[in-house]
């Protein structure tokens, strides 16, 4: 029996001005999967995610999320997905509670429900003492936690994370990993982008590697590793996992200090 993909991209291209950032992406994501979307900086990861969540409507190709065409029914998609952006963009003059209330209201949730969830989630992340403190004094990690909560507060079915661990301390990283595993167990689909293999290899069912706007590999971590031994994948893979080449670089570094 053939499963319907939750997210599907067909020939997605995106120009910024005259630069082609995405050069035809084809990808299917199925229900309950955790996809690790890996690539070096500037590969087009964030752009892909922004297209998937309907933030960038002017692209070429076809994108369906949860069965809806993103160009036609962006609103329906947005109701059912969660998005956690990379650069901690939030209204920092607000308190976490005010911000979460606002976000929840945009999703038309009841105030009581938002408050209950926000309280509990803030407590889990150890922010209960900061519930009513304006966020301009928050560290990057604290903001990232608030963003995580904001992305999940409406209990979405599909979750897009763009470098969600940047700025988090080690404990929070472990916590987020656990949370992602639990979300997967609850049947959520997770699309996770990062420029390092590290965390991704442990939690992802499938890893997709993107480089310069093209998908160059797609499979489990073991499969990719096997491929990397032989093919052209080698250098990029090493760049992402950080194996051999860094030895050279470190040696060169020392040379330059001479």
């Amino acid at each position: 029996m053939e499963k319907q993909p939750i997210v599907s991209l067909r020939g997605v291209k995106k120009y910024y001005g005259r630069d082609l950032i995405l050069k035809g992406i084809d990808l299917d994501v199925y229900a309950g999967e955790i996809i690790g979307y890996i690539g070096p900086n500037g590969a087009g990861k964030s752009t892909t995610i922004k297209i998937l969540i309907g933030m960038i409507p002017d692209f070429v190709g076809e994108v369906r999320v949860l069965g809806y065409d993103i160009k036609e029914d962006a609103l329906e998609v947005k109701k059912r997905i969660g998005y956690i952006p990379e650069n901690a963009m939030l209204y920092e003059v607000l308190t976490p509670m005010e911000y979460l209330l606002f976000i929840g209201r945009l999703h038309k949730m009841e105030d009581a429900l938002i408050e209950r969830r926000a309280m509990e989630l803030l407590e889990i992340f150890g922010l209960q003492a900061h519930t009513d403190v304006r966020m301009n004094t928050f560290s990057k990690g604290m903001r990232q936690k608030v963003l995580l909560i904001a992305g999940l507060i409406h209990n979405p079915d599909v979750i897009f994370l763009d470098e969600p661990l940047s700025g988090l301390d080690a404990n929070a990283v472990i916590l987020v990993k656990e949370v992602l595993a639990k979300l997967k167990a609850a049947g959520k689909t997770i699309f996770y982008s990062s420029h390092i293999m590290d965390v991704v290899e442990k939690i992802s069912d499938r890893i997709v590697i993107i480089n310069q706007g093209t998908i160059i590999a797609n499979g489990t971590f073991e499969e990719l590793k096997a491929q990397a031994q032989t093919g052209s994948l080698e250098s990029i893979f090493q760049g992402l996992t950080g194996d051999h080449e860094n030895d050279h670089r470190a040696a060169d570094f020392l040379q330059a200090l001479r």
Partner: peptide, 13 residues
């Protein structure tokens, strides 16, 4: 532009 980052991913037309 914070507005865009915050409001656009939400179900708001």
């Amino acid at each position: 532009t914070t507005d865009n980052a915050i409001l656009l991913p939400r179900p708001v037309n």
